[in-house]
Design a binder for these strands. Structure first.
Ligand SMILES: [Mn+2]
Ligand SMILES: [Mn+2]
Ligand SMILES: [Zn+2]
Ligand SMILES: [Zn+2]
Lengths: 139, 139
DNA sequence: TCTCAAACGCAACGATGTTGCATTTATTTA
DNA sequence: TAAATAAATGCAACATCGTTGCGTTTGAGA
């Protein structure tokens, strides 16, 4: 089963029409592998409507297909969700890592689950953005 | 020693002129207590130039007086730095917490230092954004 | 008070977010 | 396969914020 069919099936399970832009965007993101900058998505599309792309990304996030990563400089990255995410919500355990050398952003697992406690506060969720050197750049 | 004098002294230690806007902005942020949304800064100023405010916030960050917090929706918050921060750089150990009830964002200390390790990666820095209920809203 | 680097204020441009609405289309159903 | 329709698109329109250049103003030390 090729990627195109897989993408269309994924959209169907989330009750979304398989429109051209949605399929294209998902193919681009899947092909990119790591987290993709918003700009990179735009650059990879030939003809597209900015507003439609905006709504496309939003609904893909809403349905648990993508998640968005906001960087410190307010740049946005997008990445595929894992199987645990669905229309009901997102369930991410991983952290986001930005390599200072190659500037790639990726979703990575930690060696140990992160323990986080704050006095008097009830923590329901948290996300971690780490920076440093990725495996390739560290060599 | 009143706040105004303190602000001017702080600016002096960082080799910055004590201009009206800088003093006003710092007074606003100090008065707000918790992390302040960018909009709130604008709303608290009567007459101001947008570009000057932009450069003001940037240089206050650059000199280790403020730090910026980028929220998931790309909204920016600003908060005072701690004493460890200087012109040489920022040294933050704390995490950022957003209360889902009152929507306040604040800098808080964790009960235990956070341990973070990722296979094959070298982590030089990381930041944590937690959500949940703050002490006041939890009661 | 004088001096001048620093900071300001404005123009100008660009990127992205967001909503409304008329038109088009993907998918279901007859 | 054609019809029906909810969903999605495309465009206008508006807003916020980021960013740079440049001539003018000003804070702070001499
Ligand atoms: Mn991720
Ligand atoms: Mn902080
Ligand atoms: Zn790298
Ligand atoms: Zn609260």
């Amino acid at each position: 089963m090729n990627q195109l069919v897989e993408i269309k099936e994924l959209l169907k399970t989330r009750k979304l029409k398989a429109t051209d832009l949605r399929v294209e965007v998902l193919a681009i993101i899947l092909g990119f592998g790591k987290a993709i900058p918003y700009q990179e998505i735009q650059n990879s599309l030939q003809n597209f409507d900015r507003i439609t792309l905006y709504r496309t990304l939003n609904i893909l996030i809403e349905r648990g297909i993508l998640h968005k990563i906001s960087m410190e400089n307010n740049q946005s990255f997008y990445a595929m969700c894992t199987l645990e995410c669905s229309t009901m919500g997102h369930q991410h355990q991983h952290v986001h890592f930005k390599c200072e050398q190659c500037n790639e952003v990726s979703c990575v697992e930690t060696k140990e689950p992160i323990q986080l406690a704050i006095a008097y506060h009830l923590i329901t969720d948290f996300e971690v953005m780490a920076t440093g050197l990725c495996g390739a750049c560290r060599l």
